[in-house]
Nucleic acid binder design. Structure first.
Lengths: 115, 115
DNA sequence: CTGATACATTGACAGATATCAATATGACGA
DNA sequence: TCGTCATATTGATATCTGTCAATGTATCAG
């Protein structure tokens, strides 16, 4: 199911490479990790992520209000976060339910010199 | 010495607020944290940071080569990282020596739901 | 003082991106 | 089937940003 990958972080299940205090990142690794951090580098998107992270599941319809952004913008941000592997979406009926991928967050934390 | 600040992360010495798994960030907090993560969201800059982080001190003159960027670009990136509080620069003679601010990195790690 | 070296700043420009209006897709209820 | 609701996609636009050439500033050697 998971396609073969030589990426640093790989699938959310796999553990990542050495933290940045150990060795400099390769160009390829830096590209991938920067992409993930970039997904969290927008204020609105970071707040969206924190809303999802502070709950079990959040419906898209419950994000427009707190974030004060249009529906397409919310959809755009959830897509960016999902593409980065930071959140996971599940469609149930007409609603889209989002939840964080804890393993992914743990990976990023470890890259930052985590324990 | 440290100016009064109501920011989330505050000075590199102060500990930060609750991790994002506990509560959603305020607009103000998200703005600041996103700025810090944004400093790490560029591949070249992230690699620069990892080079500095994997050593005690790094001279600006030792970054142009590995990163394959012009001197002004390197200077720009170091400034962005320094403004984010992630690295600290010290001029000695004609050379600028950069080192990471470990407390800052630890703060970011804690915001990511760290232990 | 003069020239050279290391870094910072400025200005310009191409590419990325956050945003919304309009539209499309898909699911449910009547 | 029809209309409504929730979300995704497309297209357009204003803003942000990474990059380099040119220039400015500070330090050291002679």
């Amino acid at each position: 199911m998971t396609p073969p990958s030589t990426s640093v972080l790989g699938s959310p299940e796999s553990l990542c490479c050495a933290p940045l205090t150990d060795a400099a990142f390769s160009e390829r690794d830096a590209e991938e990790i920067a992409g993930i951090l970039g997904a969290l580098s927008d204020p609105v998107r970071l707040r969206l992520f924190s809303i999802v992270a502070s709950q079990d599941e959040v419906c898209s319809c419950h994000l427009e209000g707190p974030l004060a952004r249009s529906q397409p913008t919310i959809s755009h941000h959830t897509k960016v976060l999902a593409d980065a592997g930071l959140i996971h979406g599940e469609k149930r009926g007409r609603w889209m339910w989002w939840s964080v991928v804890p393993e992914r967050v743990a990976q990023v934390r470890q890259l930052l010199g985590g324990t």
